[in-house]
């Protein structure tokens, strides 16, 4: 198997190398890729969409249809992880609780149906140490991370950034909460149902904007149709349309990241993660 694998790899590598002979030189400004389609994006973006960040303009407008499906891919991955892993039904097994005033940890066997409350706090089986420094440090960081994420989404027109990047950062902030405290705390902030519905809503904002354009008489995802709704000229409407769909992307990506993390880290039981 190893020899056969090596042979296959060398053969396909040789085939790929063979083709590089006829590639244009690296960084050549007169290569076909730089001359055929892309110059129009660079030269016309400002007058056609009023977005200085060309990548954002191409991503969400010229090839916005790709991006809609890209968001759908993420949404689909979230649904697949849920479908595969989520264990619905009561949780069983042993639990650890900490008595808050004294810091004593107790071990409850067969805790199904029972739960201690009041002065007791449930803790993860594999994560018994109580670390004030980590909790506090993360608590301070999380709001700043979230504000930065919103900046990345909102400023995607002018600087590197946009819905995907901002959404991932937003999702990371919630995942950080889940890691520094525990999964149950994160779930109390943003529950399973909320995540699942937000995920669908995010992508729906994208596809719905496209469908709105269609309903207003232009082609699907032709944001210029939004001009009459937004009360602007068609070019600015494109810029605003991009912002709307980027927001949708941000929501969808954030929710899906959290959803996948919740399912994968707790193997679908939603009680104890990592």
């Amino acid at each position: 198997m190893k020899k056969l694998g090596l042979l296959l790899v060398i053969l396909s590598g040789a085939l790929l190398l063979y083709a590089t002979v006829d590639f244009p030189l690296w960084g050549d400004p007169s290569s076909p890729a730089s001359l055929h389609v892309s110059p129009r994006y660079i030269e016309k973006t400002m007058e056609e969409t009023s977005v200085p960040n060309i990548v954002t303009a191409v991503l969400a407008d010229y090839r916005g249809f790709d991006t809609m499906f890209e968001t759908t891919v993420i949404f689909g991955a979230g649904v697949v992880c849920f479908l595969l892993l989520r264990v619905l039904g009561g949780e069983e097994g042993d639990h650890y609780y900490r008595h808050l005033p004294t810091g004593v940890t107790i071990h409850v066997k067969g805790a199904k149906g029972k739960s201690l409350s009041g002065e007791f706090e449930r803790i993860d089986m594999l994560w018994t140490p109580y670390d004030l420094v980590i909790k506090t440090a993360c608590r301070i960081m999380i709001p700043f991370i979230q504000i930065y994420a919103l900046y990345v989404i909102a400023h995607g027109h002018h600087s590197p950034g946009g819905g995907f990047q901002g959404g991932v950062i937003l999702g990371a902030s919630v995942i950080l909460l889940a890691i520094s405290q525990n999964l149950r705390t994160a779930l109390r902030r943003i529950g399973e149902k909320t995540v699942g519905i937000l995920c669908a809503i995010g992508v729906f904002i994208y596809a719905g904007t496209g469908a709105l354009c269609l309903a207003l008489g232009r082609n699907f995802l032709d944001y210029a149709a939004l001009a009459s709704v937004l009360g602007t000229d068609p070019v600015t409407a494109r810029s605003h349309g991009i912002l709307i769909v980027e927001t949708g992307v941000g929501i969808a990506v954030m929710a899906t990241m959290i959803w996948i993390y919740n399912n994968v880290s707790s193997a679908g039981r939603y009680d104890e993660g990592l």
Binding site: A33, V37, S38, A77
Partner: peptide, 18 residues
């Protein structure tokens, strides 16, 4: 050229999903 960057954003997302 902005186009390959746009395409790769898609590919990154697909890789994450997979």
């Amino acid at each position: 050229n902005p186009l390959p960057h746009v395409l790769m954003l898609t590919a990154i997302v697909v890789a994450v999903a997979t």
